[in-house]
Write a protein that binds this DNA or RNA. Structure first.
Lengths: 166, 166
DNA sequence: TCCCTGAGTTCGTGCGACGAACTCTGCCCT
DNA sequence: AGGGCAGAGTTCGTCGCACGAACTCAGGGA
């Protein structure tokens, strides 16, 4: 159907840094999986319950060919699953559902959304809010350390190199 | 120097959804700002302390022209600031520093990194760890609600439409 | 039988990424 | 003063991907 190698940018280029090795950074690896145009928007819709090709296409307005490619990529990265289904009176079709690996991308979407709400929404016109299913209170992302402190921001974080190159 | 309009995908396409209006979603807006190739990698390096053009170029290996464009975009989006500086015995140059708006993108990077660490690092070879500057404990992202509960995952979240279209 | 819809595939065009080469500026050395 | 050097771009040719429109294919219904 379609050949695709994982091309991972994690191993691109001869960097040979004075600092630790940046080419293996997980950010680059993750972007190699979901960083292409439309991928994150596809996932946003998936989290909102969209499953069928036509619905993705209609809601996003992405070109069909691109959408076909992005869905296929996400499927063979294990982020989505292609599941057959049959609506009564119709022939068998496929739908795309999040796997656990895909569900675990939720914080990425939440972080993007939170930033957009803060800096791009005009006059507090936030289009979508996340609430705790149990208690109904609004939900936000927080950095917490294993000692239980909730950090106030990036300045309280210290990046520490690890692994064989340390 | 370079003209750039904010082109925001937030208003693209006539969607007219049965569900709430997806075209104003903050995820798309944020991606219009930082979703281009290399932008997030530039920010990753900025968080690790990189400030000068040549250092970005050397560490990332991105083509100069692309890097020039991405830095300019991030500057006129207000994510980076172009600051003049003068090293002793050199002529005046510029460096790129995170603004508060840029620093607030930290959770996005952390979320991408966490997912990559979980799913892409072979045999737990995590290249970089984040620790609380004060207590030294490892730090992770969490969803917490305003009642103080820490949610276990995306399934405990309910998205609620808001604003004029509700 | 023809038509319709969902899910693609094909195709021509054009923009954007790429790497190499060129430019411009001001400091340093001789 | 002249030449070399380095940082920060800019220019250019190529090549690939994104785009939108048109085409295909399968099955169900009128």
């Amino acid at each position: 159907m379609r050949v695709r190698q994982v091309n991972s940018a994690r191993y691109a280029g001869a960097v040979s840094e004075a600092l630790w090795d940046r080419s293996r950074c997980s950010v680059a690896g993750t972007l190699a999986v979901i960083g292409e145009k439309w991928s994150l928007l596809v996932l946003r819709e998936a989290f909102l319950g969209v499953r069928r090709f036509a619905d993705f296409q209609r809601v996003l307005g992405a070109p069909r060919a691109v959408l076909t490619d992005r869905l296929a990529t996400l499927v063979d990265q294990g982020v989505l699953r292609r599941v057959p289904y049959q609506a009564p009176g119709e022939r068998q079709r496929h739908e795309y559902r999040l796997t656990q690996k895909g569900i675990d991308l939720h914080p990425v979407l939440v972080a993007l959304m939170a930033w957009g709400d803060r800096y791009l929404a005009e006059d507090d016109d936030v289009p979508l809010e996340l609430r705790h299913r149990d208690c109904g209170e609004p939900v936000h992302l927080a950095l917490v350390c294993d000692a239980g402190h909730e950090l106030s921001g990036a300045r309280e974080v210290r990046p520490v190199p690890r692994g064989p190159g340390a």
